[in-house]
Amino acid sequence: MELTKEQIQLVENYLYNKNFEFIDLKVEILDHIISDIESYLNKEYSFENAFKITVLKWDKHFKDTSSFFFGFQYSESKIVVKNAVKIFKPFYFLYLTAYFLPVLFFTKVPIVFSENVLDFINGFLNALNISFFVYMIFIIVKVIKSKVKTTYSFILKTQYLSIVFLLIPLLTGNYFNDDRSFIPFLISFQSAGFAVTYICSYFYKKHQEAIQKYKIL
């Protein structure tokens, strides 16, 4: 037995009240809840009872949850966070590698550069840094302005603060110690900043794709 348009609207209101407006997930979660209700209707339950029983089962999936992978200050519905963690996990390890590898390498192997290349390397890294910083600002502004929520926009939101990895080397401007070796932590910040920019660029593309795919529905 199929739900009427009015009954579907009640399910949509339930999702709205749970602040569940993630367009990449909403279609199938709505369909799943409706299918659950319909299975009770087929067992001769009234719509009201079927709705109550189904909602009891789904409530736990919409409970506000946070994750170690994003930081505990960022919370969303459990089903969104679980989804985001599963997609984000490999990028988290990329992020850690990008930070720790340079700091370990340049601490153990302090390569000394000749005087005449220092300005070139500083200039090159600063130019890269500025362009990545501008690109990050562009992504942040675009995502905030679009106001459409997807799993990817949630992931992006949790990465905005990482822009400090680009900002600190940018403010310092010089990547070398007095002995002309790299300052390991600045190179690590720079490397982590590049990794974050790549991660944000990847999820921004996914966010845009999701909007194109689901917004017209």
């Binding site: 990449d24 199938e28 979660i29 679980k82 989804n83 997609i87 996914k206």
Partner: peptide, 14 residues
């Protein structure tokens, strides 16, 4: 459970 199914489906899709 729905909480396990959809993240798995989306990971396979990604």
């Amino acid at each position: 459970t729905e909480g396990a199914l959809y993240p798995a489906l989306h990971k396979l899709e990604a």
